[in-house]
Amino acid sequence: MSRITVKVDGGGYTDDVEPRTLLVHYLREQLGKTGTVVGCDTGNCGACTVLLDGRSVKSCSMFAVQADGHEITTIEGLATDGQLHPMQQAFHENHALQCGYCTPGMIMQSIDLLADNPDPTDDEVRLGLEGNLCRCTGYQNIVRAVRAAAAAGGAR
């Protein structure tokens, strides 16, 4: 067991973890942050995307021990005081989700995307989301949502 101290969605945690524990499993099972999900075992799907110190990472592709001393934001940490994050709002408004399984990862990556490029074109949005698979939507409404969020100043 290794002891780690992390900040997740604003809360501080100190926990003992097995070194082999993936960050996503730590979030889901030890912290109960089940909003972040697992969709693959090869780092391809992006469903597990979270922000590590503000940048997107696939939480299935790192060990919890590697996050020691770092700050993580998950889909559950976006809304503040019951107020949806503009990206969440845009996903809803633009029907950018169907089953919703890819959605947490998609929203987190979209936020990262706008951090780099606050006013992306359609093509730039598509490229920025290349690491996130969605089987339901055909992506079109996701692209629309990200651009709407950009227009609404979603890069916060």
Partner: peptide, 21 residues
């Protein structure tokens, strides 16, 4: 209409089978 089911899905308050403990 925008969908009712979105509320839980965009905030991570979802109920996937794998969440059941």
């Amino acid at each position: 209409r925008r969908r009712k089911e979105d509320a839980r899905l965009i905030t991570g308050r979802t109920r996937w089978t794998d969440n059941v403990v």
